[in-house]
Each structure stands twice: as C-alpha cells, then as structure tokens.
Design a protein around this nucleic acid. Sequence first.
DNA 1: GCTTGATATGAACGCCCGTTCATATACGAT
DNA 2: ATCGTATATGAACGGGCGTTCATATCAAGC
Lengths: 200, 200
Amino acid sequence: MARKTGSHSEITRPRIRDAALKLFARHGYAAVSMRQIASEVGIQAGAIYLYFEDKQALLFELMNTHMDDLHAAWAAVEKPDGPMNLLRTFTRFHIFYHIDRPDDVFIAYMELRSLEPENYAVILEKRRAYEQILEGILTKGVEAEAIELRDVRVTTKAVIGMLTGVTTWFREDGRLGRNRLERHYWRLLRRMLLGASVRA
Amino acid sequence: MARKTGSHSEITRPRIRDAALKLFARHGYAAVSMRQIASEVGIQAGAIYLYFEDKQALLFELMNTHMDDLHAAWAAVEKPDGPMNLLRTFTRFHIFYHIDRPDDVFIAYMELRSLEPENYAVILEKRRAYEQILEGILTKGVEAEAIELRDVRVTTKAVIGMLTGVTTWFREDGRLGRNRLERHYWRLLRRMLLGASVRA
DNA sequence: GCTTGATATGAACGCCCGTTCATATACGAT
DNA sequence: ATCGTATATGAACGGGCGTTCATATCAAGC
C-alpha cells in the first residue's frame, strides 16, 4: 500500500454512496445515470468503477446495508417484558427509524424491481425476516392473551402497511411532531389489537 | 373521414395503453422504451406517436384515467346511511377496486415522480380528493359520535396506508380469499376507530 | 529523489434512447 | 376505378447510456 489508508478511497466511496442514495430516491434507479452520480460527487463517471463493480452493485449495496442496519438497530434496542410493551417498543422503533431515513426507505420499497434476481432474493429475505419480528411479537401477544385477533399473518401485513405508510407523508416540520405522531399511531394500534374481552 | 371509424385506431390505441400499463408496472416508466411498448403491440415505435404526443403523455393518460375511473366508481356506489355503514362500504370498495387493478394502482403510487410538474399537480390533486372522501367519512363519524379519535387527518393517513398496503402483498390465489380479507381488515378497522365509550 | 501503486481522468466503444419524417399501404367514399 | 386519408413503416437524427482502458497524477515508502 503506497497511499495512507483513508486518504481518498475512504472519502470518495461514501460520497458516491450518498450521491447515489439521494439521486436514486429522487428520480429512480433507471432514470439516474452514472454520469449524474459522478457529477454530484465531483468526479468522472469512470472513477465510480474503482469502488463499485457496476450500477447494479451500487444499488444493491444501498439496499443491502439499509436492511442490515435496520436489523442491527433493532437488535440493539432494549426489549421490555410483556407483549404489549414490546409491541409499543417496536412501533416506536419502526416509526422513528423510518422517518429518519426517508431516502433509504424509499429506495428499499421502490427499487425492488430494479434488482437482478439474485440480489432481489437477498433483499426480499431480509425484509421477510424484519416483518417476521412483528409477526413474532403478535403471536406471543395472542398466546399470552394480551392481544386478540383472528389471523396473525394478515394483521402483520396490515400493521406494517399502516406503520410504513408514515414515511410517504410525514414531514419533520409539519403540523405534527414525531412524538405526537408516534403516540397517535400507538393509540390506534392498541385499540386495533386489544379484543373487547381484554379491554374490559 | 375515409376509414370506417374503429377499424384500426380504436383497436391499436387501447392496445398501446395496455402494453404500456403492463410494462410500466413491471419495470418502471424510465426503464421501459417506446420500442418495447411497440414490440409488445406488434407495431413500430413511430406508430405510437399517432396516438400519443410523447412518452410522458402516455404515462399521464394511464394515471389520469385511473384516478378518474376511481372517482367515478366510488360515485356509482350506493351509499348506506350511518357513518359506520358508510365506512364499511368505503373499505370494501377501496380494497376490491385496488386488488382488481394491481398495475394501475402500482403505477399511480410509484410513478408520481416520473410526471412533469403540471401533470404531477393534476394527479396529486385527484389523489388528495380521494383521500378527502375517507377523511369526510371519519369526520362525520366523529361528529355523530359513532367514531372516537383524536386526529382525523392522521387517522385518515393511517387507514389509507393500511388499506392500500393490501395491493403490495395480496394474491388472488393465495391462502385468503378477497372476502375473508375484506372482513378481516374491517374487523381491525372497526376496533381501531370505535372508542371504548362507544364500544361499551 | 526515485519508485510504486492507489486514485483519477477523459476519450472511446457499441448500443439504445425518444422522436421525426418521407414514404408506403390499404380502405371508405365518390 | 380513383381518390383521399387514416394508419403504419423503417430509416434517420442527435444524444445519452453503461462500461472500458490507456494514460496521468500524486502521495507514501525506500
């Protein structure tokens, strides 16, 4: 190694990542050219290939690290006892994590179809595993009779849809703060999952 | 007019529409070429321009007629008395209408960013008007004390997110039929919106 | 100060893009 | 039978695409 580690490589690479993240989220993978990404970083298009094999690898890295970070972040969260407490924790985690990373989330949901089959399978599996976390919480809740519902699988989808939808409209500077938002969603969720018998 | 009306024009035009709808939904607007669309129809790319001004006009027509059809379909639905009955009707309508037109819905949600500013404004307004229908129902429900909730706007977003999410995972040949699906979502929704006081 | 290798350039490659246009075809009207 | 026109072709336009590569630059190690 001739150059001091971290002189350029460790600066340019993440800058390419960030530029791609922003542009893919804004205009879509197919609509963004390597030259646009390079221009955003202030380099020539050819230089990108020193850090990424091709355009597809760039997209895959964005989506894959997003999913890995998501799992890692959840793993690092302190888990309280009791299904409802755990569900509340998950709700808060999901909402906050997602509204903090709008570009990553947007890409992760919109560009699945731009992935080549192998990469697609990898991302889909990690997404499935993430939804499995929620499904597991709901299942435990039902077993402990803290939650009452007919079909855990469908309910999981409904809850994920409701929670993830937040990213499509929430603006940090909007009428509602993130804490009030989270409390509101939790209130809805709790009502939705508590059966009449449990509630009484 | 020299040619019998409806000889070719009225056949080719919708065929182009259908091909574009399918391909845009599958691969995304930016990733689909006019030549691919033409090939799907069995014509040359140049012929598309006899029916659509350009590629953007093709996308806009798909999204715009989708939104118009959606509004027209809701307008044609018989509306029952009472906020909860009306909400049930809306829920059923929304779910069924959306799972019956996966491609239209997918495009309407994914390709907003591919619209030029003027077209974007048109579609966004029609979408807003549609969500306004649900918001209106919830508002009436709150006023009639049939529904109990703190923030109609946020709740509208939550419900729309939950309902629309169905289109991302529902498969007609899956474990759950459309009717059981709709009943399940309705059960969740009803619980979510009925306050404890109303429920008791 | 020279060598070496990591980092970057910029031109080039072949290809496909959206769109236009001169031309051909085929059918209804006369 | 001829004309007029709606419908379609296929070649062409300028341009941008993803990617490659010979070449340049420049900092670190000797």
